[in-house]
């Protein structure tokens, strides 16, 4: 699906018109805006293409700002995979070839979760007022949506490189099986969290909580930030009366000091890494399995109020 919608992109039936701009290895290049898409592209096109994903490990691709040289490299790509849902804001302020871009979340854009945290305002008297509202963008944490994005990626690859359609289809089948297994494991694991007092450190889990029928209160904390009295009060205010267990979901491994503070506050620490950026070790599937493992270790302790080391 070489499609374009809201991000001013377009689709092109590139068909047999593969771009002659090749990587130094002579292979076509596929650029991706986040690691899940880069991983899908790597799995699907390992035989014939190279994947360009510049943000280094530890960088959040959602807020990455490419240099002019990096944009020039991306412009040369045969295919540019966008996440959609407003992810990677740089894509709307940089020049990328519309005809090579694919928004991988188009098939479920009606299911985007709207965020209403902007203020309605106007700039000039007489002009219409507006709100800078957006949608939640960590779409792949719903692993079925991740499967849809993988399928979109495969369709775009087949359209761009029809001569590799067999290998792409074969790899897609394998990838969808892996993602399906993960989804089932995640669903089984998180079943015990339904109705629990769940606090997440960052507002990136909207699709995850919706997909697995959870309810979470979002904070805006960094795993390494110092948690003072105000933060602890904020945390205490999230407590739901009557909840039997309380869990705190971190994006990445927090500092030991923060682990201890959360533990003292009566929460069980769990790490669920969204994996937007390239992990230092392993790949997307490994990180998701680690997330499930972290949940499996933390959830059983919900009956008691003891904390678990993530």
């Amino acid at each position: 699906m070489l499609a374009s919608t809201s991000l001013i992109s377009s689709c092109e039936n590139s068909g047999n018109q593969a771009n002659p701009d090749l990587s130094p290895t002579g292979k076509p290049t596929i650029a991706a805006v986040n690691y899940p898409l880069a991983y899908f592209a790597e799995r699907l096109s390992a035989e014939f293409a190279e994947v360009l994903f510049d943000p280094s490990p530890g960088t959040d691709p959602a807020y990455w700002e490419p240099t002019d040289n990096q944009v020039s490299s991306i412009q040369q790509a045969d295919l540019i995979l966008l996440n959609g849902a407003g992810y990677a804001r740089w894509t709307s302020s940089r020049t990328i070839p519309y005809e090579a871009t694919v928004i991988t979340s188009t098939s479920f854009e009606d299911a985007f979760i709207k965020l209403q945290d902007g203020i309605r305002h106007t700039h000039q008297r007489g002009t219409a007022s507006h709100t800078h509202e957006g949608v939640a963008s960590t779409t792949w944490l719903d692993l079925m949506q991740a499967s849809a994005q993988a399928s979109s990626t495969a369709e775009a690859l087949i359209e761009q490189f029809p001569e590799h359609s067999d290998s792409v289809s074969r790899e897609l089948e394998s990838l969808l099986t892996d993602l399906g297994d993960l989804d089932r494991q995640m669903r089984t694991t998180t079943a015990a969290l339904r109705g629990a007092d769940l606090v997440v450190s960052h507002p990136v889990y909207q699709y995850w909580t919706r997909a697995y029928e959870l309810s979470a209160h979002s904070l805006h904390w960094e795993p390494t930030q110092e948690l003072g009295a105000s933060e602890m009060s904020e945390l205490a205010a999230t407590r739901t009366e009557g909840a039997s267990a309380r869990y705190f979901i971190w994006e990445t491994q927090p500092s030991q000091e923060n682990l201890d503070k959360i533990k003292i506050a009566g929460f069980i620490n769990i790490v669920v890494n969204p994996c937007g950026g390239r992990p230092r070790n392993g790949d997307f599937l490994k990180v998701m399995r680690e997330n499930i493992s972290s949940l499996n270790k933390g959830i059983p302790q919900g009956a008691s109020t003891g904390a678990v080391e993530p």
């Binding site: 374009s4 001013i8 377009s10 689709c11 092109e12 039936n13 519309y98 005809e99």
Partner: peptide, 18 residues
């Protein structure tokens, strides 16, 4: 309208240049 361009792009008639 830009929506016309989007619609055209999705019709698979070839490369579209706005």
């Amino acid at each position: 309208r830009y929506s016309s361009y989007e619609a055209l792009s999705q019709k698979n008639y070839g490369k579209t240049i706005p």
